[in-house]
Each structure stands twice: as C-alpha cells, then as structure tokens.
C-alpha cells in the first residue's frame, strides 16, 4: 500500500495547472504553429510587392489591385486588412487564437495563463470583435472580386482552362463556404428572427438560415481549408510569376 501512503498528504482538491494527462497541449500547439506559418508567409508576401500578376491572373493577396500615387507601399496592404480583419474577428478564429496565443484557456480544464484583469470582449481591444459583421460585408465584396478574377482568368485572352484558374476557382469555392457560413451572416440571414413562419419573407429567410446553419456547423473546417487554399493560391501564382512552377493548360 505504498501508493496510498504517497498520496495521503492533506491537499486541496485542485492544485496545479490541470489533472488532465492526455495530450491537451497538442491542439493549441498545432493551431499556433499553423497560424504563425500563415502570418509570416502572408506578411512577407504583402511586402514583397512582386510576382502577383501574370496576364489575366492576379493573386488573391493583391486583388483588387488598387494603385494610388501617394501610397508608396505594396498595394496588398490596401486590401489585405479586409480579409485579415474578417478572419481576426471571426468567431472560430477567436476561439482558436484565444486558446493558442492568449492561453485563456489553452484547453478545457487547464488553468488560464495570467489571472488579473480579464475583461474578455467587454473592453478594448476585444470589444472591437463586435465589428465582425462590417468585416463580413467588406470581405463579401472582396470575395465577389475574387470570383470575378477567376472568371476573368477563364475567359481572357480567350476561353481556356489552366491549372492556376482551377486553383483560383477552388479557392473561391472554399472562401465562399467559409464566408457564407459566418456566424454574423447566420444571424443576419434569419437567426435574428424569433418567428420564422410569420410571413413569406420570414419563411424565405428561414430557408437561407437553414442553409447557412449547415455551413456553419463546419465553420472550422471551412476556415482552415480556405486559409490554406488562399495561401496556396497566392504561393502557386507567385511561383508561376517567378517561372518556378508551370501552368499547364487543359484546353
């Protein structure tokens, strides 16, 4: 009965960080790694100001291309804040980075890092998360432009399909799945109603809400896939522009 003896010291029922002995640290570590890689890459690309356009093809990091005489930096900076803001205020990403970067908490049943002055999303800066729907409006405009870009790549100079165009379409599809499964949109589409069956208009909104809800169930999946796809699309276009990767044409 040595074991029993070893534990008979008077103690508090909860001491230390956690009693979990599974790999609770793995998920936040992977999330932090994934985000960091993307942020480093995106920052590098935003400032690179090169290799983003070839023929009718334009990288999603630089579209729509806005060139202002008085703005000496990369045009990407004029547009990237929109999707960045959309994702930064997204309910899924908030969960992910509050856990992975801020450790509030790192995992369920694991003690938070730091204990004083937690205000959550009640005070600056995180009270700004409430602007998510505005970012949704702007990001939807940008998304429309990306669809426009994809179609433009398809028909200019003549109707043809190449690998980059395929990648651009896949990217648009994934970004749409992400954008239209957004919690804010779910609310605006119909979630804000209390009675769906009231009249024809609320019945229509109910149908939209149902569809958005289905997308929303997998919002995390859409968030990661579209994050990867947007980074990959830019990377592939960069490599094509730099003549590293080929862009085979199918027809």
């Amino acid at each position: 009965m040595n074991e029993t003896k070893a534990t008979t010291k008077t103690t508090h029922p909860h001491t230390g960080m956690t009693t979990r002995h599974d790999a609770w640290w793995l998920a936040p570590l992977m999330v932090a790694t994934g985000f960091t890689i993307f942020i480093v890459y995106a920052t590098y690309r935003a400032f690179e100001n090169n290799y983003y356009e070839i023929g009718a093809i334009i990288s999603p990091f630089y579209s729509p291309k806005i060139v202002l005489d008085w703005f000496p930096f990369s045009p990407a900076l004029l547009i990237l804040w929109v999707p960045a803001g959309f994702r930064a205020t997204c309910y899924y990403y908030r969960k992910a980075y509050y856990r992975a970067y801020f450790l509030t908490p790192p995992a369920c049943g694991v003690k938070v890092y730091g204990n004083n002055g937690y205000t959550g999303e009640r005070a600056f800066p995180f009270v700004l998360q409430n602007l998510h729907r505005y970012f949704f409006y702007l990001a939807t405009l940008v998304l429309l432009i990306l669809w426009y870009d994809a179609f433009k790549a398809l028909i200019e100079p003549t109707f043809h399909l190449d690998l980059v165009t395929v990648i651009m379409f896949i990217n648009c599809f994934l970004l749409s799945g992400y954008s239209f499964g957004c919690h804010a949109y779910r609310h605006l589409a119909g979630g804000g109603l209390n009675c769906f069956s009231k009249d024809e208009s609320t019945k229509r909104r109910f149908k939209v809400w149902e569809f958005v809800s289905k997308l929303n169930e997998h919002h995390m999946g859409w968030a990661w896939c579209s994050l990867f796809s947007v980074g990959f699309t830019d990377f592939y276009i960069r490599q094509v522009c730099a003549n590293v990767f080929p862009n085979p044409t199918f027809f």
Binding site: Y91, K95, R99, Y118, G120, E121, V127
Partner: peptide, 23 residues
C-alpha cells in the same frame, strides 16, 4: 455579461446533452 465569454467553446465540449452552447 455575455461579453466576458471569449467563445473558447469548452462549455460545448463538456455538454453531456450535446447542446451547441456556443454556436
């Protein structure tokens, strides 16, 4: 104080009734 919630979803993870509390 709904603003205190930072939607880290642990409530949803532990809910034995599978209520999607956060979403």
């Amino acid at each position: 104080g709904v603003g205190f919630c930072n939607i880290t979803k642990c409530c949803t993870e532990v809910c034995p009734e599978d209520i999607h509390i956060t979403d």
